[in-house]
Amino acid sequence: MNALPFPFRGETLHALPSGGLHWPARRLLCVADLHLGKSDRMARRGGPMLPPYESLDTLDRLADDIAATGPSEVVCLGDSFDDLAAGRDLAGPVRARIAALMAGRRWIWVLGNHDPGPVDLGGTHLAEYRAGPLVFRHIAEPGAAGEVSGHYHPKARVTLRGRSLSRRCLLVDSARLILPAYGTYTGGLSCDRPELATLMEAGAEAILLGPQPVRLPMPR
C-alpha cells in the first residue's frame, strides 16, 4: 500500500490511500465519519431508496486497511453511524462484519454529532480519546494541540495545467490534523471554505488521497 508518512507532534503518522490514518509506533488505525447505515436512515425518513450496499463497502475497505496495517487499536472518530437508530438497526451481515473486525483488538467509538450516544456493538464509547501526545475527537476545538478530528469531510481542489482536480484530503498544521470522511456515501467540504480555512494555520498542508497520497500546501 502506498501510505504517505508525515511528522506530527513528534510522531510519524501514515496517511493511507483510503483516507485512514495509521500510527505504526502505537499500532493504531484511525478512521473518521464512517456514516454506517446512511441509506437505511434516508429510506426510513421517507427519502430515496439508495443502493443499500454502502455499509458493506465501507467495511470492506476498512477490513483491507486493518489487514494491511495489523493494528492493536482502532479509533472510529465519530459519526460512525448515520444516526443512533441506524446504529441499532444495522443489518445482520453488517453487524457480523463489524464483530469480525473488532475481534482481537481494542476498538474505540468516539462520539459524533450524528451518533452522540453508545450503540450495542461492544467496544469503548468515548467523547474523546487521548493517546500519547495526541487527542482524538470528532469536531476540532479552538486552541487544541495535537488534535486529530473528523467531521468536516475535507476535500481539496487543485489546478493542473489548466484543469481542475478535486480529491478528498487530510489537513495538517502544527497543532491539528483533520481526516477526510471514510464512509462510502459521504460528500466533501472544500478546504477553501471559511469553516476550514479559518481553522487551519497559515502553513497548513493538505494530503490528497489517491493511488499515491500527495502532500501540498493547503489550497485556500
Partner: peptide
C-alpha cells in the same frame, strides 16, 4: 452544508460493484 451531499457517481460505482 455541502459535506452532507455526495456525488451520484458513488451510487453508480456502488451499484456496479454490488448489484
Amino acid at each position: 452544508g455541502r459535506q452532507a451531499t455526495f456525488s451520484t457517481d458513488i451510487l453508480y460505482d456502488t451499484l456496479r460493484k454490488y448489484d
